[in-house]
Amino acid sequence: MARNRFTRKLNQLRDDVTDMGAITLQSVEDALAALETSNTALAERVIANDNRIDTLDRKIESQCIKLLALEQPMAKDLRVIATSFKMITDLERIGDWTVDISEEVVTMGKPIHIPVSASKFNELVADVKAMVADSIEAYAQGDVQQARSFEARDDRIDYLYKDIVNNMVNALAQGKCSTETVSDVTSLLYIIRYLERIADHAVNIGNRVCYMEEGERAFLK
């Protein structure tokens, strides 16, 4: 096997991206736990931790540029680097959304009142968490089957998102909310919007994994 040094560097890159994924996933979980338990301290920690993700993003980006410039990778090697190069942006964005969620948690500062079906909300939260975890796993394992499932799972998330938004807007319109809860509802509207965006990034990652493994870029949105 020729190019041992290069292969080592490539493996290092994948490990680094996977690590960044793990840290991002931790932020997602922490932010959502902070939301559930109104744990502002945890939320503050998520916000503080975001620069770790940003640092990793910059570090991996320069790793990729170096590999592209110096090694002139081809075929799968090229696709691994191209995928990683784009995927860190998805992870970085997910990190930013967790910061935004955490900021809402800090702003509310107390247990929130949910004026709609809690089960749908909980389902949304669980789905998004699982999708982020699975997308990172799919990248680490090169699991195309897993990656392909995201489109359908994202449809469910979009449905839940729209449904919850509708219900909340209806609740507001029908004056079911006290003045106190109106601000909670607005925050929640933002948060579920952030969750929906996080899921979109997970879908992106899934598509990139398909490209990495099979070379087809066609269905990238």
């Binding site: 799968k76 696709r79 070379g215």
Partner: peptide, 18 residues
């Protein structure tokens, strides 16, 4: 051929594995 070779030998050659 360079981005998504179909054949394993091509892949190995263009990625410098032999």
């Amino acid at each position: 051929l360079f981005e998504r070779p179909r054949n394993k030998r091509t892949e190995d050659y263009v990625t410098g594995k032999f």
